[in-house]
Amino acid sequence: MQHADLCGTDDYARGPLCLAAMHAGLMDKDGGYFEVFKSEPVSKYEGTIRYSVTSESCFSTSFTYSFQMKCSTKGNSEFSVTDVDCPSGCRSNYVCGTNFYNSNSSVCAAAIHAGVLKENGGTVTFYSDEEQTSYNDSTKNGVSSMSCDPSQTSFSFTRKHHCDRTCQNDGINAEFCYCKGIDQKEDCEIDINECTSGTHNCHQHATCINTVGSFECSCIANYTGNGTHCQPTFCSANDHLCKNNGTCLDTTTGYNCSCEMFYQGEHCEQEIDHVVMTTERNWADSRTYCQSIGGDLAAWGMRNATVRRSIIDNLLRPSLIYWIGLSDIDQEGVWKYVDGVAMTTYNTNFSSGQPDNYGGGQDCAWLYPSLNFQMDDGWCTRYALAICERILI
């Protein structure tokens, strides 16, 4: 079946409505029910063959219609009452006015603004009305409406009717009080708090502020943004968060300090000192000595490759062996540092093939000169020098 005037697919520029509905699969030759919506013109309308109906291709016209409700569908219905099924995700479409909306506004976005529709879509009823003297801007339910030219006709989501009831909290006087947002009761006397009811969209680092029929979002201290999106500003808003020339780095939930060499702690407040023993001892006695001067065998400095290299280059003698705070004394094959941190391939630099427990009993780690001071496992009873590590308060 073909008609010379039928043009388009899904969006139609011209042609008989019933034939277009057959082409869209909404009815057959025996007839049927369908809804028609005015749509925004497109640059080109593609012709196709569907359900034995052929449509032609044509170019942009001033009038377009479709059979599917879209987020962009305007409220310029020719009927006084119109029921529509809004899709999800319409919050960002154009809206002009408050309570009464300019007919060029998106019906679905205006419905979210008015509080009669959620973000996930649904069915709404809107009522065509006459031109208003003004269309005022406002922000409600996460939708910002604009003010605009009053020359256009309007629509609302309440049937226009006079009654004697006094509506509180800016409710609209209709057949019943139509309450702003999700205010409740006959006279809108109860304002539902979106902040406590969980119906707001404020960011996790923002404060929700309840208003009459709506809410506002404000980023908390050390965060900036519009309230629905908040970015951290800890470093720029607070001087000297990181001590001893540490570098402050904002994160999604706060900040971190990147410390200079030989400093550690949340704010780089701890200076780490390294002392090399001048008397050879076994591993256990070396650890006892380090503890006696307020520290322990080196652990943190051995995990940090830059610090470890600095110690090797500046403190160690080239032909001597040095105990460090790493062992598998507690459980064979499970190496950990004396501060409890487990050994990984990223926080050690054992020489190739090490640790190998050669001959058995090699349970303590040392820096071995013939291996370019890479880590090696040794017999804990052997005598060697040691590297002590302590925190200077």
Results as ranks from 00 to 15, higher is better:
Ser105Cys: 14
Cys18Phe: 14
Ser147Val: 04
Glu269Arg: 09
Leu320Met: 12
Asn357Leu: 09
Val81Leu: 11
Gly360Ala: 04
Gly294Ile: 07
Met69Leu: 12
Ile311Lys: 01
Ala237Thr: 09
Met146His: 06
Ala114Pro: 01
Glu175Leu: 13
Ala342Tyr: 12
Ala110Glu: 14
Ser128Cys: 02
Val212Gly: 02
Val42Ile: 15
Tyr322Lys: 07
Ala21Arg: 06
Thr278Cys: 09
Trp366Val: 00
Glu56Trp: 01
Ala174Lys: 02
Asp377Ala: 11
Tyr33Met: 07
Thr251Pro: 00
Glu130Lys: 15
Val307Arg: 07
Phe100Gly: 12
Ser66Thr: 15
Tyr178Cys: 01
Cys364Ile: 00
Leu19Tyr: 03
Ala284Lys: 10
Gly115Asp: 07
Trp300Asn: 07
Ala110Asn: 14
Asn238Tyr: 06
Gly254Val: 02
Phe34Thr: 13
Asp313Leu: 14
Asn99Leu: 03
Gly122Ser: 10
His205Lys: 11
Asp285Ile: 00
Cys202Phe: 10
Cys86Met: 08
Ser352Lys: 07
Ala4Glu: 06
Asn245Gln: 12
Ser156Pro: 05
Glu56Gln: 13
Cys219Asp: 04
Cys388Ser: 04
Phe157Trp: 02
Thr123Ala: 08
Cys217Met: 07
Phe155Met: 10
His240Trp: 00
Asp339Ile: 07
Asp356Asn: 15
Ser66Arg: 15
Thr61Gln: 13
Tyr45Gln: 03
Gly254Asp: 10
Cys217His: 06
Phe34Leu: 05
Asp30Arg: 15
Ser144Asp: 00
Cys179Met: 01
Leu385Asn: 12
Arg159Met: 13
Thr61Asp: 05
Glu189Val: 00
Val276Asn: 08
Leu392Phe: 03
Cys167Ala: 13
Phe373Cys: 09
Val36Ala: 07
Pro16Gln: 05
Lys118Trp: 04
Val307Pro: 01
Lys140Ser: 13
Ile312Pro: 03
Thr306Gln: 08
Leu320Thr: 09
Asp137Met: 01
Pro318Glu: 09
Thr224Arg: 11
Lys140Phe: 15
Thr133Arg: 07
Gly75Val: 06
Leu241Trp: 02
Asp5Ser: 12
Gly31Pro: 09
Met146Val: 02
Trp323His: 00
Cys108Pro: 11
Val107Leu: 06
Thr139Gly: 08
Asp328Pro: 07
Cys268Met: 08
Leu117Gln: 01
Ile172Phe: 13
Cys235Asp: 12
Asp183Val: 00
Gly227His: 00
Cys179Val: 03
His267Asp: 08
His113Ile: 12
Ala386Glu: 02
Gln132Ile: 01
Ile172Arg: 10
Phe176Asn: 04
Ala305Lys: 14
Trp335Met: 06
Asp377Phe: 07
His162Cys: 10
Asp356Tyr: 01
Cys71Met: 10
Tyr33Cys: 07
Asn314Gly: 05
Asn238Met: 10
Thr199Gln: 11
Ala365Pro: 04
Pro369Val: 01
Asp30Gln: 13
Cys179Glu: 03
Gly97Arg: 10
Asn76Cys: 13
Tyr383Leu: 13
Arg281Ala: 04
Tyr101Gly: 09
Asp356Cys: 05
Thr345Ile: 09
Asn120Gln: 13
Ile324Cys: 04
Asn304Ser: 03
Asn93His: 14
Cys257Trp: 00
Cys248Leu: 03
Gly47Asp: 11
Pro232Gly: 08
Thr348Pro: 02
Asp250Val: 06
Cys108Ile: 14
